[in-house]
Design a protein around this nucleic acid. Structure first.
Lengths: 227, 227
DNA sequence: ACTGACCGATTGTCTGACAATCTGTCAAGC
DNA sequence: GCTTGACAGATTGTCAGACAATCGGTCAGT
């Protein structure tokens, strides 16, 4: 959504190889191509990506710092696993941060952000019935992205992005996609309305509530599947 | 503080070079040996540390992920600078997280943690009058470490550690060490008491208040020094 | 004063190499 | 049969050397 079309962003395709690899791996992990606990062997990654070990290793360091992979000394990196306990902690923190983000969005009431939130909410409603969930997921992701940016705190934004990556992996371990769509959509509508109205407490609570509901289901599934 | 002496920790000196370098650099930045904005040239670091470029680069990637250094493409890493605006955001988030930690400590009331908090508080009182501030700083650091561990949330712990590293750098840019010691000590006492009493709201508020006070002074100094 | 070509510095990346370390196996010993 | 110890294979951790790409500044030319 370029504000004006004097948008001369050349989008810098020429990012470093390291970053490309990093993003590739991140999405591979996020989409479940690499499953939690799976070993990631450097040489294999080299072959699969066609880049040297240097770039692979540096990308892995980055992912390690984000917590997406865990490196076992002299054994190599594996896709991070997460215990039910840690997952609960993850959701606790996410609720805290997202509540903060919601509150700040409501306080700032940036019209650009609100417009983006509204657009994505409508988009979600439109595709909610589709068999294929990918559109819904994409819209939801965009909604969150707008929420994070809207909070105006780069640290919150960065941390929440990390947490979201981890949550995505979690979803992979326990394919939690029950028919919660309707209620989820409604909750997001509540968030949106509160932000539009500048209702800070309401926005915060709605965000927290939304995460807590999601957490309850995810954790339930996780415990059932693992323990 | 080994609980029992059946503590068979062999303390694993044999960490990887990369980690050693990483910690070295982190503390060099934290202690102001490397100043914000300063370039960190790989070859120089190689000479200074005596390790190869591989290890240096991987360590830098880690620090970059933590936000301590910023890499400019084809120019190399510099010690991250921070604007007054970002500093305010940093403190906002820190207040949020530390408030959470305080609340959780008060809720859990882990006797081991409380003991550690108490010890450090007393230690702080004892050395508060010293000319040399390093003891005081060390005790304060330990107090925070106990608080973070006590909250029982690994994610909060990790994120707060990152933020604290950044704050330390901030202190370097603006040597903010006014005679706030007395009040600071009192605030920490308030936190401790609330936690001991299991007063969750009180602990949270005390933590938030403490950070906000620190933030006000730091930001004041920062704005005066930069703008 | 502006333009543009040139040059040194530095990163980004690859290759090949080697020691250190982990894991699993398999035979020897109780 | 079960434990112990030794051995081999796999993989990482680290280094050195190399080279193209790119950035920043200089300096001559207009």
């Amino acid at each position: 959504m370029p504000k004006t079309d004097s948008d001369l962003n050349v989008s810098r395709e020429a990012t470093s190889l390291r970053l490309l690899v990093e993003n590739r791996l991140r999405s591979a992990i996020g989409s479940g191509v690499f499953k939690p606990g799976q070993r990631l062997i450097e040489r294999e990654l080299c072959e699969q990506t066609g880049v040297g070990r240097t770039s692979i290793r540096e990308a892995l360091r980055q992912l390690e710092a984000e917590g997406l992979v865990t490196t076992i000394p002299h054994r190599g990196p594996i896709v991070s696993t997460i215990t039910a306990d840690e997952a609960a902690q993850l959701y606790d923190l996410r609720a805290l941060l997202e509540g903060f983000a919601g509150r700040e969005c409501a306080r700032r009431r940036d019209p650009v952000i609100i417009e983006r939130l509204r657009t994505q909410h409508e988009r979600m409603s439109a595709v909610a019935g589709n068999e294929d969930r990918s559109d819904l997921l994409a819209a939801k992701t965009e909604f969150y992205a707008a929420l994070l940016e809207g909070c105006g705190n780069v640290f919150v934004e960065r941390f929440l992005k990390m947490l979201l990556n981890r949550v995505t992996v979690l979803r992979m371990t326990s394919m939690t996609q029950p028919n919660r769509i309707g209620r989820s959509l409604h909750e997001i509508g509540t968030i949106l309305t509160a932000i539009e109205n500048g209702d800070q407490d309401g926005a915060e609570q709605a965000c927290v509530q939304h995460i807590n509901n999601a957490a309850a289901i995810a954790l339930e599934a996780l415990r059932r599947g693992e323990t």
